[in-house]
Amino acid sequence: LIVDEAINEDNSVVSLSQPKMDELQLFRGDTVLLKGKKRREAVCIVLSDDTCSDEKIRMNRVVRNNLRVRLGDVISIQPCP
C-alpha cells in the first residue's frame, strides 16, 4: 500500500478504504502489523476512511518515522495473529 498523510493525529491509528479492508478481511479496530523499510515494523489499529483511495494507507508522521518511510513509499500490511 502507498503511504499517505493522515487526517487525524492519533499515533496508533492507520486508515484504509472500506473496499481494501474488505479485501484484506480486516474490521474496524483490528490490530495490524505494518512493515516498512530496513525491517522496521509497527503495530497499529486500522480504521475505515471513505476519503482514502483503495491503494493508499493513511498514517501520521510518528508512525511514518517509526517505519522509516515517507509519503508515497510502499509498505506491506498484515493482520496481527
Rank of each mutant, 00 (worst) to 15 (best):
L1G: 02
L1A: 06
L1Y: 02
L1S: 04
L1I: 15
I2Y: 03
V3K: 02
D4F: 03
D4M: 10
D4E: 11
E5C: 11
E5I: 10
E5R: 06
A6R: 08
A6P: 13
A6W: 12
I7L: 14
N8T: 14
N8Y: 12
N8V: 08
E9Q: 06
E9T: 07
D10E: 06
D10Q: 09
D10I: 07
N11M: 10
N11I: 11
N11E: 13
N11W: 04
N11A: 07
N11L: 12
S12E: 14
S12R: 10
S12T: 15
V13N: 04
V13R: 07
V13T: 12
V14R: 01
V14S: 01
V14D: 02
S15V: 15
S15Q: 15
L16I: 12
L16Q: 02
L16P: 01
L16Y: 01
S17Q: 02
S17V: 00
S17C: 03
S17G: 06
S17D: 00
Q18D: 04
Q18S: 09
Q18R: 10
Q18W: 05
Q18I: 08
P19G: 14
P19R: 14
P19V: 14
K20S: 06
K20G: 01
M21G: 00
M21P: 00
M21H: 00
D22V: 09
D22C: 08
D22L: 12
D22T: 10
D22F: 07
L24S: 01
L24R: 02
L24P: 02
L24A: 02
Q25T: 07
L26V: 11
L26T: 02
L26M: 10
F27P: 04
R28D: 14
R28W: 06
R28M: 13
G29C: 04
G29L: 05
G29F: 06
D30I: 02
D30E: 15
T31E: 14
T31L: 06
T31M: 12
V32L: 06
L33M: 13
L33V: 14
L34R: 00
K35M: 11
K35A: 08
K35S: 13
K35Q: 15
G36C: 13
G36F: 06
G36Y: 05
G36T: 10
G36V: 05
G36W: 02
K37W: 05
K38M: 11
K38A: 13
K38G: 13
R39D: 13
R39F: 12
R40N: 08
R40F: 12
R40C: 09
R40W: 09
E41P: 06
E41L: 04
A42V: 09
A42K: 14
A42R: 13
V43H: 12
C44D: 02
I45L: 11
I45H: 08
L47M: 15
L47H: 15
L47C: 09
L47D: 09
S48P: 14
S48K: 12
D49T: 12
D49Q: 04
D49H: 04
D49E: 08
D50C: 09
D50I: 09
D50V: 07
D50M: 13
T51L: 07
T51E: 14
C52R: 05
C52Q: 11
S53F: 10
D54E: 09
K56P: 00
K56D: 04
K56A: 13
K56F: 06
I57G: 00
I57T: 02
I57K: 00
I57N: 02
R58N: 02
R58P: 00
M59L: 13
M59I: 12
M59S: 01
M59A: 04
N60K: 03
N60Y: 01
R61L: 12
R61E: 09
R61S: 11
V62Q: 12
V63E: 05
V63N: 04
V63W: 03
R64G: 02
R64H: 03
R64S: 04
R64L: 10
N65G: 09
N66D: 14
N66R: 12
L67Y: 00
L67S: 00
L67P: 01
L67N: 01
L67E: 01
R68G: 13
R68P: 00
R68T: 06
V69T: 07
V69I: 11
R70H: 06
R70E: 15
R70K: 09
R70V: 08
R70Y: 12
R70T: 13
L71P: 08
L71S: 12
G72Q: 03
G72I: 00
D73Q: 12
D73C: 03
D73Y: 01
V74F: 14
I75L: 06
I75C: 04
I75M: 05
S76Q: 14
S76V: 13
S76T: 06
S76D: 11
S76G: 11
S76C: 11
Q78I: 11
Q78K: 05
P79D: 03
P79H: 10
P79W: 04
P79T: 07
C80A: 14
C80Y: 07
C80G: 14
P81Y: 05
